[in-house]
Design a protein around this nucleic acid. Sequence first.
DNA 1: CTGAAAGCGCTTACAG
DNA 2: CTGAAAGCGCTTACAG
Lengths: 342, 342
Amino acid sequence: MKKSITKRVTIRDLAQKAGTSISAASFVMNGSWERHRISAETAQRVQQAAQELGYQPSARARALRQGRSSLAGMIVPHHRNRFFAGLTEQFEAGARARGLVPIIGSTQRNPSLEITVAETLVAQDVEILVVAGVYDPSRINRLCRKRGVRCVNVDLPGPDSFSVVTDNKGGAYELTRRLLRSLPKDATTGFLGGASREYATELRLEGFRKALNEAGNTNNPAELCCGYAPSAAHDALETLYEEAGALPRALLINSITAFEGLATYWRDYPSHFSGLRVACFDWDPFAACLPIDTIMLRQDVEGLIDTCFEWFDAGVERAGEIVMLPPQITIEDPANLTSNEK
Amino acid sequence: MKKSITKRVTIRDLAQKAGTSISAASFVMNGSWERHRISAETAQRVQQAAQELGYQPSARARALRQGRSSLAGMIVPHHRNRFFAGLTEQFEAGARARGLVPIIGSTQRNPSLEITVAETLVAQDVEILVVAGVYDPSRINRLCRKRGVRCVNVDLPGPDSFSVVTDNKGGAYELTRRLLRSLPKDATTGFLGGASREYATELRLEGFRKALNEAGNTNNPAELCCGYAPSAAHDALETLYEEAGALPRALLINSITAFEGLATYWRDYPSHFSGLRVACFDWDPFAACLPIDTIMLRQDVEGLIDTCFEWFDAGVERAGEIVMLPPQITIEDPANLTSNEK
DNA sequence: CTGAAAGCGCTTACAG
DNA sequence: CTGAAAGCGCTTACAG
């Protein structure tokens, strides 16, 4: 005995109202009625009835029957910067272009939330899972494999799935080279943010050191891998200043969140920045407006996601393979990048 | 070049492996086995088998059977600023706390995408739909009503659903009052961004004008409702400067995206800003570091979303009712605080 | 051209 | 205590 207030309009109601069989109604609703030689007049009646009833098929019932969910899942740490916001928006667009409904879960860099979110997405039978910026992609990769979900890593690669990443070493190398231009050969330098022993940070450090070597800079750089929190970056700068009596002439900032700490430090002590050049491995429109001598790099957000979908479309697994994308643009004028803002 | 054909593990496989009936397996899997007097030994066997098989129930099959999807939907324009990023993160947390899987769709302020996204969410049978920053909430509200989906508007209210919004008029009034402090009584003023005839913009304009009136400022303010695009705000400032020969002494910026345009304009012409005070109806950490004399307001993102869920939990419809929340914090750039207050 | 029927993977009232 | 069976709302091969 059902006693729901608004009872769902089902395909049965639709068929009844249109005076057709259920299958005819189904064929009309998903556009295959001509192929099934339903008469135009019948199709018309069904569409009319659907209109009047406000009928819309249940995506879940359809998915269950068809064995495919039409859902596309993605995991990111959060949405609070342009890199992740760009990834998720591109992901949404790519998913919709393929008739998939995007589901994005954020994990706040919390390892246990990561696995929980992955499990809920897998339980929804997502057809693809894009994993970005998690603590341990392998666990998620294996979970997906077990459940037959196609999984791809972005930003941080893993041995158990196909991965697509930015050329961290090359990008950091190029940034550092530009940073050192027009500075004295043995200028003091520093690297701020990220976590040592972490994939991206290590590679960026390598690129940073390589550029220093090539420039013949023999000064020991300050390497401050203080994590991603803005406050930690702020404090690291403060300590550095107190110990050395000055900030380094050239600073490579590893991630926009660390740059946030630098911005607040700059606001507190603008005079400490005179003659100082900064480069940042990421981009933000407001950050680019600060009157700090800064070069910003923008990762190829669109390319990263597009590559994931191309891999998905091709249907070939390529587990363990890593595609590396060059950072797209080195930004000195952010004005041309804000055009897609509304 | 191989595609693994992993057949889905169903509850039937689980029951078979554990040597129990399907219903027993089901009871064990969703934790109600004690209530159904399944022996501990049987439960143990089922859990063991589930572990070995990597069995996880299909959320969609369960949803279909139970008549509830455990999905929570939200619509936002995009994720590229702290206001919307904050809303979606709070929404995710609230949904997960209730055992719901969050699905967030962004629409890039495109009216036809808005309705498409709403339809896909409704087709997924979301149990609640939170609508923020769309062009026309009413259409979506009606769609939901027809399909029995509980719908709530955030930011922009509508007559057909419960709505929760920031106190736009009060916030703008307060911002403007602070803006005018220590400025001459008849200082030139301006309002930049948003769209005239739009709900939030009109109310903020009202608050702005009210504060001007109270201050006895009889100067005609420049009201530039140029939309939300940073480039439009930038151009509006440029035009204003050319026409008037100077920017107004006090500027209220309606939304952080318009402030982005102001930031780029400031970068191009910092000298135009001397003696100028700015207030912004939104907040961004980098924007707050710019050396512009700025007061920023932060909407109560947490409160807005929490109120939605409280309404959802209560189960009462309250269509047409509007709950208004005061902006939570007024953030002032500490760099500029020394001369003023605190 | 159209309809009756099986079945996707679950849950749960009911019978044993 | 446990199992057989109905049914959620669809799709589609198959029979008529």
